[in-house]
Simulated scan of single mutants.
Amino acid sequence: MSADLHAIQNLLARFANSFDLKDWDALSACLASSIHTDYSDLRGTAPEQMSNQRYAELRRIALQDLQTHHLSGNTEIELVGDTGRAKVSTVIFRKNAEGQTLHTHCLYQFGLSKSSGQWLINSIVQKVFWSDGQTTIHAGIVK
């Protein structure tokens, strides 16, 4: 069990770091082949099911012109066999080339599954507590 918890903590860190490093292949590798996403709090879009490649491509398009820094903590992980759930409190700092910023304080709720000995994210729900700054700098916000 502790090996699984350690693997999941590393998975969640790789997920967050891949955004900041703009490593879209690493991001995609954190995800199951098909994932449920719900970013309705931030983006105003409906929840949807998509491929891991599509998810990574949408993030690349939305964030390519921004510097980001995802800081996470207060991680809670619950496991039942080869499935799990994790809650991760996160602050996402974003800045464009002109110095405009958008910072979002949120809670990620992840669904997890273990396949062939590897933990992957199969569901991502982002609950926004609040955002500060210019929402217009983020191409992924359609509200």
Score class of each variant (00 low, 15 high):
L107P: 09
V91T: 06
A139F: 11
L112G: 00
T104K: 00
F93Y: 15
K114A: 01
G140P: 08
D132A: 14
K127A: 03
G140Q: 01
F129R: 10
G111M: 07
S116R: 13
K114W: 03
E98A: 00
Q134A: 10
L112F: 09
L102N: 07
S116H: 13
V91P: 00
L107D: 10
I121W: 09
S89P: 07
G117D: 08
N122E: 02
A97L: 08
K95C: 08
A139K: 15
Q134T: 10
I124Y: 01
L112V: 01
S115Q: 15
F129V: 12
G99Y: 07
L107T: 11
S115L: 13
E98R: 06
G111R: 00
L112I: 02
S116K: 13
T135E: 15
N122D: 11
Q118G: 03
L112P: 02
T135A: 14
S115V: 10
S131K: 00
G117Y: 08
K95L: 04
G99T: 01
Q126I: 04
A97V: 06
T90C: 11
I124V: 12
G99I: 05
T135C: 14
V128P: 04
I124R: 10
K114H: 01
S123Y: 03
K114M: 05
I92H: 04
R94N: 09
L112Q: 04
S113A: 11
S131F: 03
H103T: 12
G140E: 08
W130A: 09
V125W: 08
R94Q: 13
G117Q: 10
D132Q: 15
D132M: 13
K95P: 08
F93S: 06
I92A: 00
S89T: 14
F93A: 12
W119G: 06
N122S: 01
Q126T: 01
G117T: 04
G133W: 04
G99R: 08
G111E: 01
V125R: 02
K127R: 14
N96Q: 00
K127Q: 11
G111P: 00
S113Q: 13
Q100P: 04
V125L: 03
W119Q: 05
H105K: 13
I92S: 02
K114V: 02
G140W: 06
Q126D: 05
L120R: 15
T135P: 15
W119F: 07
V128N: 04
Q100H: 03
H103P: 01
H138S: 12
G140C: 06
W130I: 03
V125Q: 08
G111L: 07
F129L: 15
S89Y: 14
R94G: 01
S116G: 11
I124H: 00
E98K: 02
K127T: 03
T135K: 14
G140L: 05
G111C: 00
L120V: 02
V91E: 05
L102P: 07
V125I: 07
K95I: 02
H105E: 14
T136V: 03
R94H: 09
D132T: 15
Q134D: 13
L102T: 01
W119H: 06
A97G: 00
W130K: 11
Y108D: 02
W130P: 01
I124E: 09
S115M: 08
G117P: 07
T135L: 15
T136S: 12
L102R: 02
G111T: 05
S116A: 15
Q118A: 13
S115P: 06
T90P: 06
L107G: 07
